[in-house]
């Protein structure tokens, strides 16, 4: 248990946390703004990775590959959205269906292989774990900070527009939204598309960072995303009130999550038990509001 090992692993953990932070911001759009639990993300993050990896291997510019991943992710969200609104399937099931379908789609994208190597030696990648401890602009943390800032700014702008406000109203109160002339079905689809586009984008970055795209890279993504959202809210909820800062809290939540993971691994936790631990921690946090209301509530006048 050398402390040096832990310190050496930290920059990589921060970078990885930032990539998952982008993913968690995408998840925040459905989970917190639209109030829809979208399980598509487990598939769409891998789709993003697969699309970007294949395009880069085939000589595409890395930025064009990222854009393509974003667009394909939006298509995945569109499918879930149509399952939910047009076909009337419950949101959670719609996401599961798309996620399952994406498993086959992702294998197809990767030429029927379960994983595709994306070596930084051969291709010009935007982020790579190899540069995690390099002091300089090629350090993935630098580019990821810019990515996160840009994403938060764009979303802050979007959710302040008339359209963005109508999306927030859709999540807050669907009956009210419809009474104010808002097409809640279209907005739900739009939110799912935007969310999965961002998730796929983070998948595209993740594939570059880890040096491969894998059909299983999204397993449990929703739980990691939720962990980031919840940690962000618990730690920064009291001080971050502004919408932009709330998104920042989500990004920071993901970084904290990966730092904690790094510490427990360093303390000797078996890597295989990681998902079990994550699921339990998230379950406890999700249960807390219920427990608080049920066992610790003080009588309060409801408005």
């Amino acid at each position: 248990m050398e402390i040096v090992k832990l310190f050496n692993a930290m920059p990589g953990a921060v970078a990885q946390g930032m990539i998952w932070g982008l993913m968690a911001i995408g998840l925040y759009i459905t989970y917190r703004i639209l109030e829809v639990s979208d399980l598509t993300v487990d598939g769409s993050i891998a789709t993003g990775g697969a699309v970007a990896a294949m395009l880069i291997i085939n000589g595409w510019d890395v930025w064009a590959a990222l854009l393509a991943a974003f667009v394909v992710g939006m298509l995945a969200g569109l499918v879930t959205g149509l399952f939910h609104t047009f076909c009337g399937i419950p949101a959670i099931l719609s996401g599961i269906l798309t996620q399952l379908a994406l498993y086959s789609v992702n294998l197809r994208i990767m030429g029927n292989k379960a994983n595709v190597a994306l070596s930084v030696n051969k291709y010009g990648l935007l982020v790579t774990s190899r540069n995690s401890r390099v002091l300089g602009l090629q350090n993935p943390i630098v580019i990821l900070v810019l990515f996160t800032a840009a994403l938060i700014l764009v979303l802050y702008w979007f959710f302040g527009t008339e359209l963005g406000c109508s999306l927030r109203a859709t999540g807050a109160n669907r009956a009210m939204a419809r009474a104010q002339g808002i097409n809640t079905s279209t907005n739900t689809v739009l939110g799912l598309m935007l969310s999965n586009g961002i998730v796929a984008l983070s998948g595209a970055l993740l594939a570059q960072f880890q040096g491969f795209a894998d059909v299983g890279m999204g397993r449990g993504a929703i739980v990691i995303g939720l962990a980031a959202v919840i940690i962000g809210e618990v730690v920064f909820g009291k001080i971050f009130r502004n919408f932009g800062l709330k998104l920042l809290a989500v990004a920071l939540g993901a970084i904290l999550y990966y730092l904690v993971i790094q510490v427990v691994l360093w303390l000797g936790l078996n890597t295989n038990d990681l998902k079990l631990l994550t699921a339990l921690v998230v379950a406890v946090f999700l249960a807390t509001p219920h427990w608080r209301a049920k066992y610790f509530s003080k009588k309060k006048g409801g408005a």
Binding site: F158, G160, T161, E162, L163, G164, C165, S166, G181, I182
Partner: peptide, 9 residues
């Protein structure tokens, strides 16, 4: 009843 676009809300 109005169009909701990308103008500030």
């Amino acid at each position: 009843g109005q169009h909701r676009g990308l103008k500030w809300g």
